[in-house]
Structure formats: C-alpha cells, structure tokens
Write a protein that binds this DNA or RNA. Structure first.
Lengths: 142, 142
DNA sequence: ACGGTATCGTTGCAAATGCAATGACGTCAA
DNA sequence: TTGACGTCATTGCATTTGCAACGATACCGT
C-alpha cells in the first residue's frame, strides 16, 4: 500500500484551507470593526432575517456551541449592536435582533465579505462553480 | 444587490465543513487511541519521514502554532509514542522521532484514516477528483 | 392540576489556545 | 574573539473554548 501523505489527506487539507481563509477574513473585520469570529457569525445570521432569532436557532444552523453563541450575543449587546429580549410566547427563548448600529455595521461588512469571497474564487477560475457545488454536496445541502 | 446569505458564504462553508469532518474523524482516533488533534497531526507528520524532524519543521508545514506543536510533542513523549532529543549539530533544534510504540499506533491509524477519507469522497462520486484538484489549487500547491 | 420529562439559555470550570517573552544556541562581520 | 543579531523551543499568561450542570420554563400524559 502506498505511503500515507498528510498533505494529501482530505480532512487535513480542509482544515488548513478553512483556517487560512478564516484567519485572513477575520483579520479584516477584526481590524476594521473589532469583532470576533463568533460575533461575526451571529451578526451575519441575524442580518438575514427581519424577525428576531433565538440563540438556539443560531447555534443549530451556525455550527457553534450554545455557550459560544450566548457569549457572543452578550458582547454584541454590550457593544450596542444587538438587543436581547425574552420571547413573550415562550419565555425560555431569547430573541436577538439587530439595532440600527448593528445594521449599519453589517451593511459595511457585507460588501467586504462579498469582495473577499470573489477574490478567493478567482483563484479557481472557471472551476469555481463546480467547487462550490461540491462543497454544498459535502455539506449535505438541499 | 442580492441579499447576503451566510450559508452560501465560502469562508463560512469551508469552516463548517472542515469542523464537521475533523470532529468526526477525531472522535474516531480519540476514542480508539486517546490522542488529541494536535497529537494526531504530529504523529501523522512524523510517520512520513524516516529521519527525525524538528518542531519548527512541523509547525511550518502543519499549520499549528509553535507552542501547540511543542505541547503535543511533550504529551506524545510522556505517553511513549515519540522521543525528543537535542540535535547534536544545532543544539537549538529538538529532534522528534517515533518510538516503536508510536509506529505501531500510526500503523493502526493510517488504514482508518484512508477508509474515512474514502467514505467522505464517496459522497462526491465522480466529482471527487476534481474537488481535490480545486482544493489543492486553493491551497496553493505545486 | 400535577408530576415527570424535555428544552432553553447561562454560567462554572477545567482544558486548550494564541501570543509575547524568555533563555539557549548559532551565525556573521569586524 | 567578541558582540550584535537571528533562530529555536519552551513557558507564562490572559483569553477562549467545550462540556456539564443548573435554574427557569414549557409540554405532555394521566
């Protein structure tokens, strides 16, 4: 059997690539807005829907531990980017929603995100679409 | 401009996929051999070469902080899987090499790794090769 | 209505992490 | 040879992380 080569091991490659790209991008929003990765995720998720969203909903969909989401939300509340309130229908739930300040920040952030993504995909040329499709397949989408 | 959708954001997708797959695989070797992810990386890297390898060499190629490598190596030494020794030519360097016990463990581990990888790639069917090629391109290989 | 069970978000805590500082060693030029 | 500078691995420390435990609330069968 041929030798095992770590550099060609899929889980390893994915790990390295994801870490590199995330580091690069997070350096961007960290320096520009002073937010952390978990905070960015919460913000990005909140920006997608008008209605308030519970902590559970986020950590379900966003692949972060409950506590991570909870703490990120608390920081975002302190910094005035989101509001937390108890859901009156089900008092176990906490509703998160963007403040105007939060919305403004996301509005600045999103173009940067798009641009960053475009730059990355440029490296793949015409293979970009296929790569994304395969990524989605591995993520078990649709 | 169309709405920003986190689920379709490349850095996010890569992060999630890498985390999922790494979690899955690390659960395997953790339950079976009690080693952590950094330890697995060091072992996997050491298994690829006969000659001893310095800490620097590993953290350069393996995308881990120096201290992470150093601590993983110490744990692996305690558990008897590797040996650490001072390089006699350049006494700043620490040579890491597998013990027989370490080699035996890696020998068990590698087939599991291959199999795991195969299972993942199966989900892509005939696209697998292309996906890997694109991954390599993004990693800036060759 | 009541008890048992499940779900939600937060928190405590131990472990892992990243980063800077440190100390040991090498290199090189004068 | 010396001294300034660079490199290596480890360690200290503050922060982050994951996990379990907890209190509060909701749900469900009886």
């Amino acid at each position: 059997m041929s030798k095992f080569v770590l550099d060609e091991f899929l889980p390893y490659q994915l790990s390295v690539l994801a870490a590199q790209i995330s580091r690069e991008f997070s350096a961007l929003y960290k320096s520009r807005f002073g937010i952390t990765r978990p905070e960015w995720r919460v913000l990005a998720h909140l920006s997608q829907t008008e209605s308030p969203v519970s902590v559970r909903e986020i950590f379900d969909r966003v692949d972060m531990d409950k506590s991570k989401v909870s703490r990120a939300a608390s920081r975002l509340e302190s910094s005035g980017h989101i509001l937390k309130s108890v859901n009156p229908t089900d008092r176990r739930l906490v509703e998160l929603r963007l403040t105007d300040k939060g919305r403004a920040m996301v509005a600045e952030l999103e173009p940067l995100a798009r641009q960053f993504e475009t730059e990355v995909l440029k490296r793949l040329g015409r293979e970009a679409g296929r790569f994304r499709a395969n990524l989605n397949a591995l993520l078990g989408k649709k």
